[in-house]
Design a protein around this nucleic acid. Sequence first.
DNA 1: TCTGGGGTCCTAGGACCC
DNA 2: TCTGGGGTCCTAGGACCC
Length: 417
Amino acid sequence: MSKQDGSGRLVTSTPTADLSAHILHLDMDAFFASVELLDRPELRGQPVIVGHRGARSVVTAATYEARRYGVNSAMPMAVALRRCPHAVVLEPHYERYTAASSAVMRILGDVTPLVEPLSIDEAFLDVAGAVGLFGPPYAIGTALRARIRAETGLVASVGAASTKFVAKLASSRAKPDGLLVVPAADTLEFLHPQPVTALWGVGAASAQRLERLGLRTIGDVAEAPIDALTRALGPASAGHLHALAHGRDPRSVTPERSEKSIGHEVTFERDITDRATIDRELLRLADRVAERLRRGGWVTRTVSVKLRFGDFETITRSQTVAEPTDVAQRIATEARALYAASPVVGRGLRLIGVRAENLVPTGAVARGLWDDDEGWREAEGAIDALAEKFGRGAVQRASLLRDPSPRRGSVPNGGGD
DNA sequence: TCTGGGGTCCTAGGACCC
DNA sequence: TCTGGGGTCCTAGGACCC
């Protein structure tokens, strides 16, 4: 049962044998900052900020002590330090976060194979099949939190509910260092008083549009006519949010989700205009992208370049190539051509990025599936194996290989015929 | 206050195909 | 003469999340 204390904050739930809340959302508290504090225990209890000190940096993570001064992640570092001048600023160490994340995910995997990592510090678990072994969701969440603390020294909060969205909301309400179970029967009571911004997928822009319709709480959205929502947000968002507001969320916990794009970008300390510097950066970024493509067993069919100018205007340009690649030089050549053809006209560049989209499993190309119909037919079994490994999305992309010639007119410079 | 870097998903228009 | 309907792919931009 969700309850509130005097201040209106939801408090950690009491033990419950409820089995309906079988989806767990586990979220690490102030993750990067907590990992840093493992090496700097003397800083415990102090406001600590993780991030660079550069002129254009933002806060990567902040301890709860720093948050009390109004410091939050993604906030410009300059603003954060104005709000909390005595904060200790630590450089980030991503390898440590990755290692800590792996340790946590391994612990989750001991409970069930149905673990879906959502980011470096979050995951969903479906524990419906684990209750026989480990007890009800409340007991599992409690045990996981204890084990993570004992083995990594880090603090995790857990939300449990009958759907992903409500579980995620429950974990955010449980923070810091808490656990909240929302049984299916309590879902609407839990959901409806919360602000629309608590809906997963509602940010500043959507909140403003909903506000214009007079919709402030999730309960308001649940009662709103779907037509009005559609006019304000478009059909997909409207249907999705309306369902969420009614506590309906059919998404299941999906352990294997294959990546859809790989990219890198940099923001320069000062805006740049020098073409040689830009070309060098594009090669460097292309090299990092290509390296990750090869490590992941992908080739890319579409290269995209992102440019952000001094005034923060941001554009992207992309090009689908006839032959997929994981070679840095080829990606860089595409990126440079896209840059050269873009409307830069000597404007200062603040950010530049390179991204590989339309990823195709390298194995599909290597097996001759790219341009050999005979090979394709002989390799139906191989496709099934790919589906096993990479999921249905990858197979759909792989199915493109049946017809390797680019659509007429879609590839300038005479791609196919 | 002045805005990182990693991503995902949706929309919308044009080209093209049947 | 004015002109379909459904579908896919490509591209660009934007909202959103951590």
